[in-house]
Design a protein around this nucleic acid. Structure first.
Lengths: 345, 345
DNA sequence: GATTAGCACTCAACACTTTCGAGTGCTAAC
DNA sequence: GTTAGCACTCGAAAGTGTTGAGTGCTAATC
């Protein structure tokens, strides 16, 4: 029996137990539940070593020991065994995402609630549209009121964006249609981010009336927000954990979840289709220094990128969290065969 | 000094004090803080009467007394004095709603966060569109992909609704335009709820190809949800109140706020531009039987109806809540001079 | 007759002590 | 290297008094 290996196993047992119970783990517990061939005294010696190595902390002399951040890091990096979901759970996920939904908001909400239900962790779903990816496919002006039109932009990926525009003069529907057709053909393939500038250019080449119209249109295409929506689900789950039975802590946490900026920073900064685990202070938000965040991003086929984040105490069930997010990724990618963010059964 | 009047004043003092402190109120407190000309013994007698009348409860023999639901009801119905907001607060509200926003979701979120910030109560904002009110003003088909078009409906109030439609055959943009124009003129003024039926009717009079197209369009106009969005803000405020320092209670409450149905029922059922106060069990949601809900509805000019609900403990600052909601109503109605849900500075 | 002072009684909250048990570290024996 | 044994530590839980805010009742006072 390799000694290094044994230390490793004991550390793993401690982390597993602590994740399960949230109670400091004593040598006796390990000896009875995990390493029955070793006496508590032996475990004690090992634990003493592990503490010296920085993997364990002791809250006080006669409590058990608690894993340190370093331990969780090691655990996540090396000790995690894949933990497949049950068939029922996968079916549940599939079913939940299957229902016909049109709005991204709705999908996100559904997803957040399903995932938080499955994991018991608070779940945040952020959807953003990387602007550079969006190119114009079709443009249409629709009359709404006398001097008011709706500018509809269809992108190559099928996303639709609508902007109300107030014109300075009245324009006949037929004219609007002609203008739409000309602009459509001239601007096809133009990145949405450059649409304003391109419209200005075209306007410069046009005569008085038309230039004015195009100028007004250009003016509406300035600030398109990148992050479109953030939905949070399963907040009440936070209060299940004994670490937040202190109301003040819970309140802090909840109020972070109400701060859009902090959520964005929590969910940003990892690549596409990649799962990232940020333990404790790693997540960068001061108030969440003893929370961990597991995030995953998926590309939704229509140019949108969705990031799902699970937020829980540092003693999170990382294996479970990662499995669920992986499966969600597979399910979503399988479903999104469509162009406008609509799900297909 | 009228005796009835005095009882009244004492009850009011008790409620006021309890709302402020959340602590059972004793006779001595009232005698010192509110009715200095009366001794505690006198107050005691009055309180004893009030208890017999059902306005006060005593948690146990030697605690003070606590207002009953009946007392709160009386308080709200008869004792409430108008409590105008400060100039700063009104300015804050105005400023917060003033910023240019396009999406109803955004307005709601902003509003929820502002109102919950001002009142320290959790705030839910529901937006719905009474279907019967919506009538078609303009219809436009926009090509998106080969066999895919976007059906855009503009209502008389200026709301825009878009539905992606998959066609069975490819249709040239010019044809789409012509069809749009004809349908627009034929269907103008048609309530959105009847749109599907009307399209079917027209289809029946048409030839093969066209009938198919119209039939497909009609098929998409079936289930338009009435409640479009619910946004909740200031959840963390709940944990400020000592009544929710019991984590289990707080969790229950939070999880009600995550149940869309319950939120809908909480926010539904009061008329337009009217403020409703539902105390404790009156709000009809079992889990919220010791919460009160103050709601107000406003018509947004574009046919949408927004309902704002403040959720807090039964010892809510009703006066304050009502003032804030009244002011919000005024501000919103002032701002919504526009047709498509966009706010104007 | 309404008001009040006075008194006995109640009960939660707080501080304090004791007990208990789960834990540790160390040492000596296996 | 492993383990049994022992002394020690410390938080949690349970028990104990004390305090103070509260009540209800009665008798005296205005």
């Amino acid at each position: 029996m390799d000694m290094i290996d044994r230390k490793y196993r004991i550390l793993q047992a401690i982390i597993d137990d602590y994740i399960l119970t949230a109670l400091p783990v004593g040598s006796r517990t390990i000896s009875r539940k995990y390493e029955q061939r070793l006496s508590s005294a032996t475990i004690r010696n090992e634990m003493s070593d592990l503490e010296e190595l920085g993997y364990l902390d002791s809250p006080h002399t006669s409590a058990g020991r608690v894993p340190s951040y370093k331990a969780y890091r090691l655990y996540v990096d090396q000790m995690l065994q894949p933990l497949p979901l049950s068939v029922e759970e996968m079916a549940m996920l599939q079913k939940c995402l299957n229902s016909r939904m049109r709005q991204v908001e709705q999908i996100s909400a559904q997803l957040a609630s399903a995932v938080s239900g499955m994991t018991h962790y608070t779940t945040a779903v952020m959807t953003r549209t990387p602007r550079e990816d969006l190119r114009l496919s079709h443009l249409q002006l629709v009359p709404v009121a006398d001097r008011r039109v709706l500018l509809i932009l269809v992108t190559t990926t099928g996303t639709v964006r609508q902007t109300p525009v107030d014109l300075e003069m009245q324009v006949a529907p037929d004219v609007l249609y002609t203008v739409s057709r000309i602009l459509s053909s001239q601007l096809e393939g133009c990145p949405l981010s450059q649409l304003g500038t391109r419209l200005q250019e075209i306007a410069r080449r046009e005569s008085d009336e038309m230039a004015k119209l195009l100028g007004t249109l250009a003016g509406t295409q300035e600030d398109v927000p990148e992050v479109s929506s953030i939905v949070v689900g399963g907040r009440s789950n936070l209060l299940r954990f004994p670490e937040y039975s202190d109301v003040e802590k819970a309140r802090n946490l909840l109020s972070v979840l109400e701060t859009r900026d902090k959520l964005v920073s929590l969910l940003s900064g990892n690549g596409e289709m990649e799962i990232s685990v940020r333990i404790g202070p790693e997540n960068g938000v001061e108030e969440l220094k003893d929370c961990s965040v597991v995030t995953a991003s998926y590309r939704l086929g229509d140019g949108k990128v969705q990031t799902i984040g699970l937020i829980g105490p540092t003693r999170m069930q990382y294996g479970r969290a990662i499995s669920v997010l992986t499966q969600v990724g597979r399910t979503i990618c399988g479903l999104f065969s469509d162009q406008d963010g609509e799900l297909r059964p």
